[in-house]
Amino acid sequence: DETGKELVLVLYDYQEKSPREVTIKKGDILTLLNSTNKDWWKIEVNDRQGFVPAAYLKKLD
């Protein structure tokens, strides 16, 4: 059920640097789980959840 889920576009590649982070690729469109922290957003990638720098993402309307 995708209702109410926010999507984000990945602006730059990011390689995870800790187990709490996930790797993302430029151009991916992913589900945003939590954006309350202005610097690190929690997203879902391939059934994995983790954090990436918010500056690497853009919210889609």
Rank of each mutant, 00 (worst) to 15 (best):
D1P: 13
E2D: 13
E2N: 15
T3C: 14
G4C: 14
K5I: 13
L7M: 11
L7R: 14
V8L: 04
V8T: 03
V8D: 00
L9C: 07
L9Y: 11
L9H: 04
V10E: 00
V10Q: 00
V10F: 01
V10K: 00
L11I: 08
L11K: 05
D13I: 02
Y14T: 01
Q15S: 10
Q15R: 10
E16C: 11
E16A: 15
E16N: 06
E16L: 08
S18M: 08
P19W: 07
P19N: 10
R20I: 11
E21N: 05
E21V: 03
E21C: 05
T23K: 04
T23F: 04
T23A: 04
T23I: 03
I24V: 15
I24Y: 04
I24S: 01
I24M: 08
I24F: 02
I24K: 00
I24E: 00
G27D: 06
G27W: 06
G27P: 01
D28L: 10
D28C: 10
I29Q: 04
I29H: 04
T31P: 15
T31V: 15
T31H: 11
L32T: 01
L33T: 05
L33I: 14
L33C: 06
L33H: 05
N34S: 13
N34G: 06
S35Q: 09
S35R: 08
T36C: 12
T36R: 11
N37C: 09
K38V: 11
K38Q: 13
D39M: 15
D39N: 13
W41S: 02
W41M: 02
W41Y: 04
W41N: 01
K42P: 00
I43S: 00
I43G: 00
E44F: 07
N46S: 12
N46M: 14
N46P: 06
D47C: 11
D47P: 03
D47K: 10
R48S: 06
R48N: 05
R48M: 07
F51R: 03
F51Q: 03
V52T: 02
P53D: 01
A54M: 05
A54F: 02
Y56P: 01
Y56D: 02
L57A: 01
L57S: 00
L57I: 06
K58W: 09
K58L: 14
K58D: 05
K59P: 07
L60H: 05
